[in-house]
Design a protein around this nucleic acid. Structure first.
Lengths: 213, 213
DNA sequence: GAATTAATTGAACGTACGTTTTATTAATTG
DNA sequence: CAATTAATAAAACGTACGTTCAATTAATTC
């Protein structure tokens, strides 16, 4: 046999990406074989090479897409006005919603950096840094305007990112906790963390925050 | 050749463990080969099998030792008296100090869980859970005695652990930040996170704290 | 100082890996 | 409807993997 009835390049590539994200998130990049991936897609191993020249290029493509989607989501969710507390709320809410919706992609992007070549690693890290810069800018603005009380901006930014990304490690949407409830609690913890000055701001921010369905 | 002059089983096993932790932390368990490990130790691959029957058993041994050391360190550092704020301070300080001292071990224990068989995974997760239980107990005590203001104990415990473990991802001891400075800032952020009630406690905890140079 | 035990080498086994090559069939185009 | 392009299968290539086995030497014991 050769070309199969109803085969379509776009659909096959999408299926490969989806299966790869899932398998790599579950077993790790090194542990996943091209044969395993092909079997999941329902195709012979050689067919994968029509879409991705190497296994590493496939990994890189997945990671880059994830980072660009994250930056895109923040670009759409970013408030055009409002003080630092409001901006920070939006950032945290968007981050948590995005990561809960894409647990597997996030796992891949966070755990498999060491499997990238130096050049590709640099590209991914640049995207990551530009995302973290957004958070630092918010923290700096809040610190300068007196809305936040922050000891060290860079350190606080890392602490917040670790904390809110960590949700995907333990959170399962089908438990006693809802996405909305978890987001609310994390918003509250974040505001305390940055020493958001008045109760008014905290309540205002939480009141105005809408969570994704 | 066979047995080499001056060879010693204890020293060789220690060398294997040390090299394995370092290599696995750097490249990942699946990516490290037994030949690579043997070369690092300065021995032939077959010699490794005198000390560890399989590659996975070696990984498991490293992880279990790390978790038991963590529990042991907390057992030694745990204050015999004091309120919840004091206990929490001790927990955070011990956690950060332990993890900064053992970056590689921590990376292995946190990243390579999926390479363990179900039985071995269970053992490691049990150790991890019993460590997390310590933090939850402190948070519960603080919440009940009114020292802390906590929304959800389990959730707050996970947030704190993610935050303070995240230090090892970005912190390098030889930079502008000292271990002491980072620990102080994280202690302060943790106390805010749990809504430590009175300024007195926060100030007590931060007593002697100076901002980084 | 012979016998025994500890520590290691050297070579090999079977398997599975990422990838390439060639052939073949389906869909599209002129 | 012939020619071309798109999408895949089938088979193979060379390599590297975890592990085993037998032989060999160093240290220890009696």
């Amino acid at each position: 046999m050769a070309r199969t009835a109803g085969s379509d390049g776009e659909r096959t590539e999408a299926a490969i990406r989806e299966a790869a994200v899932d398998l790599i998130a579950r077993h790790g990049y090194e542990a996943v074989t091209m044969r395993q991936l092909a079997a999941r897609v329902g195709v012979q191993p050689a067919a994968l090479y029509r879409y991705f020249p190497t296994k590493e290029e496939l990994l890189f493509t997945l990671m880059r897409a994830h980072m660009e989607a994250l930056l895109g989501a923040w670009n759409d969710a970013r408030p055009s006005s409002g003080d630092a507390a409001e901006r920070l709320s939006a950032f945290v809410a968007n981050h948590i919603a995005f990561h809960i919706e894409r647990r597997s992609q996030t796992h891949v992007s966070n755990m498999e950096l060491r499997s990238l070549s130096p050049e590709r690693l640099t590209i991914i890290l640049r995207l990551r840094t530009s995302y973290e810069k957004e958070l630092r800018a918010i923290l700096r603005e809040g610190a300068e305007s007196g809305v936040f009380d922050i000891d060290d901006i860079g350190l606080t930014a890392m602490a917040i990112i670790q904390m809110i990304t960590g949700v995907i490690v333990w959170f399962r949407p089908d438990e006693r906790l809802s996405v909305e409830g978890v987001t609310r609690t994390y918003l509250s913890m974040t505001m305390r963390l940055v020493g958001a000055s008045t109760k008014r701001e905290i309540h205002h921010v939480q009141a105005g925050t809408r969570l994704r369905a």
